[in-house]
Simulated assay, not measured.
Amino acid sequence: MIRTTLGLIALFAMIAAACVAFGAYFSYVTLQNAHRSAIEARFSITAERIATTAQFAASLGIALPAQTTLSELVAREARLDPAVDSIDVLDDRGTVLFSSASARVGAPAGPLPHAVGRRIENDLAAAIGRVVVRYDPASMDAGARALADDLRTIAIPTLIGAALATIAIGILLAADLKRAARRAAEPEKWPPAARTALAAAQSVHASVTRGGAPDPAATTETARS
């Protein structure tokens, strides 16, 4: 009985710890996605500013390749945020027209694994180019590590506390059950109604054992006493 009780307490403690661990993991994933969205939203604002400038110039009749002032603009915007690797302005074929990294001018955009973009449109809402902000993935990794460290600092003590609290509650419940079982084995500690019922049952059992029918009057008198 003791072994079974201890096994159940250990099982419930592991379940409580597992619940805390899963909760911490899902919180980490949620916060990491929120952190990524926040950083990409910051870069999207930069792309939006440059695209708005290019669209305004296009509305005045200046073709996108002729907007040479964009070269200085993208360089200035890239210097404002150290997490930005480069800012490119592409034409509608994906060729880099202007870039904060001058070596990229004239080259195709290529793959964009860590970048956010914004379309450049003319007055008819047709795409005439695109602004692409490439960022350093290390900025994402640093935020993810910080989140992991914070959650680990909170989750590990919580996990240990949940397991210990479950064990303590299990031991208290087991002690109460043990005391109740001990009281149940000692009829003199039963409530009066329970003792009366036991006496009546014993009287009936004794009458049956002697081979005679139980005396209703005696049974009633015993129950009344």
Rank of each mutant, 00 (worst) to 15 (best):
R152I: 11
F22V: 03
L60S: 15
L73C: 07
T69N: 05
A10D: 05
I39E: 08
F56Q: 09
Q67T: 09
E48H: 13
Y135I: 02
F26S: 00
P111H: 09
T46F: 12
I120G: 05
R130G: 14
F26V: 02
H35L: 03
R104G: 02
Y25W: 11
L124H: 07
P65Y: 00
G129L: 11
S99H: 10
L31M: 14
M14A: 06
L60H: 14
I120S: 09
A146N: 09
D91K: 10
A66G: 01
C19K: 07
A75R: 06
A138F: 00
P108F: 04
R93N: 05
T153Q: 12
A144Y: 03
S86R: 07
P65G: 05
R104K: 04
V105D: 04
F56C: 05
V84E: 01
R49D: 09
D150M: 14
T95N: 10
G94I: 15
Y135C: 00
D81H: 04
C19S: 14
G106F: 10
A138M: 04
A17I: 09
L80F: 02
F98T: 02
D91M: 08
R79S: 09
D85M: 10
I154C: 01
L151T: 03
D149A: 08
L97F: 03
A138W: 02
T46S: 11
E121T: 12
F43G: 01
A18Q: 12
R152K: 15
A63S: 12
R42G: 12
Q55M: 15
P113S: 00
Y28I: 03
S139T: 09
G61V: 06
I62F: 14
A24M: 04
E48A: 13
G129R: 07
F22N: 02
A18V: 04
D150C: 05
T69Q: 10
A34T: 01
Q55K: 05
D150L: 06
